Amino acid sequence: MSFDDEPGHVGGDPGRGDDRFSTLGGTRQTRTRMPETTGDVYGGARRPQRTSRSLVMVVGVVVLLVAAIAFANRGGDGSATTPDTAKPGATEPTAATGTKPVGGKQGGIASGFAHDEQGAQSAASNYAVALVSADILKPDRRPEIVRQVFAADKATELEANLDKAYGKDFLSKVGLDSSGNAAAGMTYISRTAPVGTKATAFSPSSATIEVWCTGVFGMAGVGSTNPVTNDWFTLTLQLRWTNGDWKAESFSQKDGPAPVNADRKASTADEIAKAVQEYGGFTYAR
């Protein structure tokens, strides 16, 4: 699946090295490797080195994504929300604290987070999972996700921009129909797992949280030209305490930190698709 060092925010155009939407819906393309032989692209052999032909295809998709992302982020006044205090929190291990930070769920997304730093980190982790999911590309699911994750005064504008960015033409180019569904025999996969969180600023009314993530993204199925691969990235979310809960005002994304990839046999397309169907997601909390 799969722009400049400055982080983007809702309302501004992101740079190529720091793109808040580059992993949304699993559309990252920069690590896709094309098969050199026919048959199942997950057939068990080591991943072949990228050919010049596949590189041209990847560059083409990346150009498409950058255009869609820039379009999605038009509007706004071009300024980022700044927390009430810019006081970075101390580095702490991501571990259970004994405090339950989540009170319930709305539309499958956790809600009712504790009004403290722990609750803000839990909110950011759960929102990262929702924002980098296959459902964000589905027109009938997107409004529910956006309204659950973002503050009310930000949701309407963002929803409209995403609707335009991820329209029928865009979906078709990534292998999905107008409803965001894959073709028969294919399974579109975009699943994220937070590895850790860090509060870089916190006050009772706002917080800046970084969420280090890994995930699997791509199309599983025989003949897929975008096989499922893994990625590592960090989402930075600006949160606000509003109406008794933490909600996002903006977010940005950057690559890494990424470990060295293990040299291990890839699973078949059927195994990958089955795993996504059988293994449910988590509600994340510190």
Rank of each mutant, 00 (worst) to 15 (best):
L55D: 11
A72W: 04
Q118L: 01
A70N: 07
G89V: 08
E92C: 04
Q49Y: 11
P101H: 13
T94F: 10
L65F: 03
P93W: 06
A72C: 03
P48C: 02
A70I: 12
V61T: 06
L55G: 05
A72H: 01
G76P: 11
S52H: 10
I69P: 00
D84Y: 10
R47T: 15
E117C: 02
T97H: 10
K100D: 13
V58I: 13
S54T: 07
K87Y: 08
K105M: 10
R74C: 06
Q49R: 12
R50A: 13
G104D: 08
G119E: 04
G107A: 05
G76R: 13
G108M: 11
G78F: 10
D77G: 05
A96K: 11
G75L: 06
A95P: 00
Q118R: 06
H115G: 01
A72M: 03
Q118M: 00
R47V: 15
H115C: 04
Q106F: 04
Q106M: 02
G104F: 03
T97V: 09
A120F: 01
V59K: 14
E117N: 04
E92V: 14
A67E: 13
E117Q: 08
V61L: 13
V62P: 00
G76T: 09
R50S: 04
M57G: 09
Q118I: 07
A86D: 14
A72G: 07
V102G: 01
V61F: 03
I109H: 00
T94P: 00
A96N: 07
F71A: 14
T91S: 10
R50N: 02
V58E: 07
S79Q: 15
T91R: 15
P101R: 03
V66Y: 08
V63H: 10
D116K: 00
T82Y: 06
